[in-house]
């Protein structure tokens, strides 16, 4: 079976797998958002496309977008304008490289996995800033600058929250973090109890991570870069056709990726308690995706319930509350790590 160990074969397999997960996942999340959102508003939502329950609506929308003219406004910086959506999409997909779906089902088990994903996930804001700047539109410009301000405010709590996890797990590899959550936490009689980090005292860290993740996704209540009632559509104002689709897919794909990271870091990832060995490779993706689905549902739920904040209030929240709390979280975790 040297054929399986071939580097190129594995690369193609992994690429196909990640692309498959990202794109189908994004379509599923778009459909879920359409359906959940409309039922929360006592509407029905997509109904006819695809025959039953309108399951094909995201596909139909995608096809419609593909047919649209790809406009770029006069005075825009064509090259930058054209590349921006692909930067966003690339950054989103690259995050999936380190997300472990099983002990062996991972794009690359990097030793610095946590570091890598924090670095890569903030890259998408570069695309947003490019889009805002190159659109030659005042609304886009304001939206792009808001996104940049938001990034600076939110990348810090995100990193600090992850630092606490890394301290607790003692490794930066995401597989290692999952394994750490399967280690014996304490023993009752002859039972070895293991628990995900969220139960092992990381609830504060989880809350900070999720708030920062939603802010990074720029979804309600932190969707100021888009804020359709203020900036029409923010940095997306001028985009149409396939480039808009890229942004759109990117947003939903990064919803999945950030939820997957949160599930891995705090909720035990692919691990099934009491099950070891190769079988986890089979069960793992299902377990992880269930956790992702729950987190995605909460994100969608919030989006259809709450209003949005103001940019300065978001900064206040980030700098005066989340960062101190995250630092406190690190301190507590370190103390526990040293003492116990």
């Amino acid at each position: 079976m040297e054929f399986v160990d071939n580097f190129w074969f594995q690369l193609v397999l992994k690429l196909a797998g990640i692309l498959g997960v990202v794109l189908t996942g994004a379509l599923v999340v778009i459909y879920a958002e359409l359906k959940i959102g409309s039922h929360m508003q006592t509407r029905i939502g997509p109904y006819y496309a695809g025959g039953r329950w309108g399951w094909a609506q995201p596909l139909a929308d995608g096809l419609k977008f593909l047919q649209k003219e790809d406009l770029s406004p006069t005075g825009s910086d064509r090259t930058v304008y054209g590349f921006a959506p692909y930067v966003v999409m690339m950054a989103t997909i690259a995050v999936f490289v380190v997300v472990p779906f099983g002990p062996d089902m991972v794009g690359a088990n990097l030793d610095l996995g946590a570091f890598y994903l924090l670095a890569i996930s903030s890259l998408s804001v570069l695309g947003v800033l490019m889009a805002g700047w190159s659109s030659a539109n005042k609304y886009s410009l304001i939206g792009g600058l808001r996104a940049a301000a938001q990034l600076i405010a939110y990348e810090l709590p995100l990193v600090l929250a992850v630092v606490a996890v890394v301290i607790q797990a003692g490794t930066m590899s995401l597989n290692g973090i999952v394994d750490a959550q399967q280690q014996t936490w304490f023993t009752i009689g002859s039972f070895n109890i293991s628990a995900p980090f969220i139960i092992q005292g990381q609830i504060l860290g989880f809350a900070i991570f999720m708030i920062a993740a939603v802010a990074e996704l720029s979804r309600i209540p932190f969707d100021m870069p888009i804020a359709e009632s203020e900036l029409t559509m923010g940095y997306l104002t001028e985009y149409s056709g396939i480039r808009f689709t890229m942004f759109f897919l990117g947003e939903y794909a990064s919803m999945i990726s950030l939820s997957a990271i949160a599930a891995t870091l705090y909720l035990g990832g692919y691990a099934v308690p009491g099950v070891h060995g190769n079988i986890v490779n089979l069960l793992g993706p299902g377990v992880l995706l269930t956790k992702v689905a729950i987190l995605v549902f909460v994100i969608i739920w919030i989006r259809w319930t709450w209003p949005r904040l103001r940019e300065d209030q978001l900064q206040t929240l980030a700098w005066t509350w989340l960062i101190p709390l995250a630092l406190l979280n690190i301190a507590i975790v370190s103390i526990f790590k040293v003492v116990f």
């Binding site: 929360m40 006592t42 919030i302 319930t305």
Partner: peptide, 13 residues
């Protein structure tokens, strides 16, 4: 507020 939307989710439209 989230309770209101959750209730609406399971109501008939």
């Amino acid at each position: 507020g989230m309770w209101v939307t959750l209730k609406a989710l399971f109501k008939k439209a």
